[in-house]
Amino acid sequence: MRSFPVRLERAALQGGLIVSVQAPEGSPMRDPQVIAAMAEASLRNGAIGVRLESPDHIGAVRRRCPEALIVGLWKRTFPDSSVYITPGWEEIQAVWAAGADVIALDATDRHRPAGQDLADLVRRASGDLRAPLMADIDSVDNGLRAAALGCQWVGTTLFGYTETTAGSRPPAWELLAPLRQQLPASTSLICEGGIATADQARSALQQGADAVVVGTAITGVDLQVAAYVGAIGR
């Protein structure tokens, strides 16, 4: 069983950039080897880790970059729940088996597929797998609850993307200071969602985040090109 590495502790993340290397369904960028190449390029240029979606992508990056710090997740949708980021035990096991160092999962208070319970999932992941967890949250209360359950990292990933925060727009500036003040000192606070510039990333760190996750602004070729084309009215 893997033990909790020193490089995952809060002190090791200070001021770091984690690049989310993902691509939408149907995109040619979604090829595992393309994802792995983008991940390697990110790491070569100073990223402390990468955030990857799906066991196939996690495995491809692990093979290409054996020493990479990988935050893994698996997006799956179910008709009985709006939770889609590593929603259940099957997804947790698959992400861990593929080679992730940290498993990211939805840690909001929403109903999970098949009535699965967040507290039970955290207990099983921590006990059966000894897997470090990143809680993707949308509010201060959910972040504190996730830390109390045993999640080592808390990320603002879902702020603006849940039913109760749909009227808000990331980045989650309003969550950073209260979370840092109230989270246990050992819990890492990650700002993720809506970071589009280096200045915003720096601001997130100044407001209490230990590290930042940036995705679309760096690796989102599909969305970035579409935005430029839309802006110039082509």
Rank of each mutant, 00 (worst) to 15 (best):
R2N: 14
S3Q: 13
P5I: 15
R7L: 14
L8W: 15
L13K: 01
L13P: 03
G15A: 09
V19C: 13
Q22F: 03
G26M: 02
S27W: 00
Q33Y: 02
A37Y: 04
E40Q: 10
N45Y: 10
N45T: 04
E53F: 11
H57K: 07
A60Y: 02
R64N: 11
L69F: 07
I70P: 12
V71H: 03
W74C: 14
R76W: 12
R76S: 15
D80F: 14
T86F: 11
E90F: 07
E90W: 07
E91H: 08
E91F: 07
A94V: 05
A94H: 04
V95S: 06
D101H: 14
D101C: 09
V102A: 08
V102L: 06
I103R: 02
A104H: 06
L105K: 03
D106C: 11
A107T: 00
R110N: 08
L118E: 01
L121P: 00
G127T: 15
P132E: 12
A135T: 08
D136K: 05
S139F: 05
D141V: 12
A147N: 01
A148I: 00
L149R: 05
L149P: 00
W153V: 02
T156A: 05
T156H: 02
F159Q: 05
F159A: 08
G167V: 09
G167W: 09
S168L: 13
P170F: 01
P170L: 01
W173I: 02
L176E: 00
R180W: 01
Q182P: 02
L183S: 01
P184R: 04
I190D: 00
I190T: 01
A196E: 08
S203N: 14
L205S: 07
Q206L: 12
A209N: 07
D210E: 10
L223G: 13
Y228Q: 09
G230M: 07
A231P: 03
A231G: 11
G233E: 08
R234A: 13
